[in-house]
Structure formats: structure tokens, C-alpha cells
Design a protein around this nucleic acid. Sequence first.
DNA 1: CGGTAGGGATAGGGTTCT
DNA 2: TAGAACCCTATCCCTACC
Lengths: 188, 188
Amino acid sequence: MGAPKQKWTPEEEAALKAGVLKHGTGKWRTILSDTEFSLILKSRSNVDLKDKWRNISVTALWGSRKKAKLALKMTPPATIQDDNNTALSIVALANDDERAKPTSPGGSCASKRSITSLDKIILEAITNLKELRGSDRTSIFLYIEENFKTPPNMKRHVAVRLKHLSSNGTLVKIKHKYRFSSNFIPVG
Amino acid sequence: MGAPKQKWTPEEEAALKAGVLKHGTGKWRTILSDTEFSLILKSRSNVDLKDKWRNISVTALWGSRKKAKLALKMTPPATIQDDNNTALSIVALANDDERAKPTSPGGSCASKRSITSLDKIILEAITNLKELRGSDRTSIFLYIEENFKTPPNMKRHVAVRLKHLSSNGTLVKIKHKYRFSSNFIPVG
DNA sequence: CGGTAGGGATAGGGTTCT
DNA sequence: TAGAACCCTATCCCTACC
């Protein structure tokens, strides 16, 4: 009677990903209004976009929302305070794109939102690199470059964010005995 | 980084309620500045207060803003003209308070506001009782007594307001063939 | 400019369907 | 029975209007 569960097509999914790349996460209404995507996504609401993005994100990182919750519970007290899953997978998005590519490969909308996004990506990188003593700047950058479509001077951005994240206590910086570079470890 | 969603604690909610009781609705900045509440509400803005109060109010009456809107739409033309949600929940407010009670339990700010509140509650009662031909005074009063913490002589107040509401055309009074009591039906 | 009212968007928990 | 799609609503954001 209601809606028979409208499954997302690959085209729609690609449009959503491109939209997030262009406008950032959390700008669902904006993405929907963008003429570049509005046609493809015309049967979706802003809330649909949000929900789908959550599914994509969480799936990419943990396999499912349920597992994600469990994972979060298992993470001791001190953790990153901000929104848990959304942004980071901006990223995972480049992985599987040899199909629909709704134009504008490198979006240019990068204000504050993208910055906190980058923070999340960095956190993800460190997590996924799974190096017991944390990862250094170069490894982190290479991971990001490999998994995301990166804008021009991403390396510098990463450096800046790393400095910021360690000064505000989100990451701790560890100096090594036998190397010049420091490693970064999420607090908690 | 922005708090993902700062949920209201029972203490904060109690402070807000007490603040409204003391200063009235719409005096958000005043409430925030009152040293009696400023500490508890220090992480809230005047706008936050306004939003939370709206939420409390509407929830008490209709369950949610969405339902409130629907209910309003379904009520044909003639309706109550004044402020839609604000005041009334001064009432519902007594429901769950055996915890934090930030002093001044009985504020003395009652005049016109409380009166229109009661009118709304009456309307709600009739609506929720869902009796096809309207409800009589006794049913209405029992409904209110069951769903709100009622002051001493509420029964008389209800009677007075019913008379008023039917004389000003908000309700119509229907005399029944086989009963003495009349029923009241919202106009529209 | 500072404040409030109101519309509307988002975040996240919950629910239903497959 | 897990996971995708969808629902519910507290919270947050934006704009118009003093």
C-alpha cells in the first residue's frame, strides 16, 4: 500500500556519492536541489539521502549499523566526540566507480564542513592501517590518497589537521626512538 | 567540533519549566539570565530554550509537532486564533516532577495565559475522546483529570470555559433527546 | 544589533520489509 | 536473520520580523 521499498539503483547511489563529494555530508536538501543530481534523485527525499548515506558509510566501515553500534560500545570511554559515522565514507566512495560518473569529479566545496570531514578520514586511516603504535604522516597520507579522490594539496591539509588534532587531544603524537617522524594514535 | 546532538537532561528540562513558570513563555533570554537557572542551562541558548519548550508543549498535547500540524490541517476553517502551542503545557509540566525542583514551585503568573491553556486542553479532550456526537462536560472533565495534574477546582473551571467556548462559537452545544447533558463539538 | 516565532532540515534511534 | 529501506521526532538551523 505504501511504498513497496524502492531499492537504490547504482545510478542513484553514484549521484548521491557525487553529491556528497560536491556539497559535503549533511547537505541533503542542497544535493537534492542541485540540478546536476535532482533528476536522477527525483524520487528520493532528503531523508532518504541521509538514510542511504548512513547505510553506505556504515557498511563500508563496519559491515552494518548493528555491528557499528557494538563496535562503539566496545570502544572505551574517551573517544571522538563528534558525529560517528557520516562523513568519513565520503571516501569509500571512490572505490567502486567505473560506472555512472555524474560529472564534476573534483568538487570544490571545501569550507569548514570538509575540514571536519578530513579529520574523520584521518581517523579512519589510522584505524584501518591498524599499526599497533599508530601511523605516521606519510602513511596516513598515502592511505587517503589511495582510497579517496584527493584534491590538489591534500598533503598539506593532512599535515595541518594532524597538528590540530594532536593539539586538541584527539590524537596523541608519539616520538619514536629510531625514526624522525612521529606517529599519531587516537586517544581512548 | 559541534555537538552531534545535545540531549536535554531531566535537570535542564525541570529548570526550563520552572523558568517558564517564573518568567512566562517567550522570555527565554530572561530565563537564561536568571541566576536560579543560568548554571543548569549554561550550555543552552535562548533559541534552544524556545525550541525545547515548543517540543514539550506540543508533545504534551498531540504527541509531536507533525501530528499537531496534521491535526490543525484536519480541523477545517474556524479554529482558535491565538498562539498555537506555547502556554498550555505549563500544565502538563506537573506530570513528572518528583526530582529536581529548582525552588519556586508555585509561580504566580496565571492570568490570561492559563485560561487559553485550559481551552486548548478542552479541545484536545474532545478530539481525543473521539465521540462521534461530541462529548459532555463530565467526560471532558474526566479526560482532563486523567491526563493532567489538575488544580483544586478544575471542574468548575472546565464548566466555565465550556460555556465561554460555546458562546463564542468555538464549540457548538448539542442537546440530546434522551439525556439531560449536552454534548460539545468543535466548530468546523 | 539582539531577541523571538516559526518553518524546515538534520541526526539518530527505531521499525518494517525482504 | 541480517541488512536495506523507511519512519519518528528531538534537536538544530535559518529567516522574517520586530
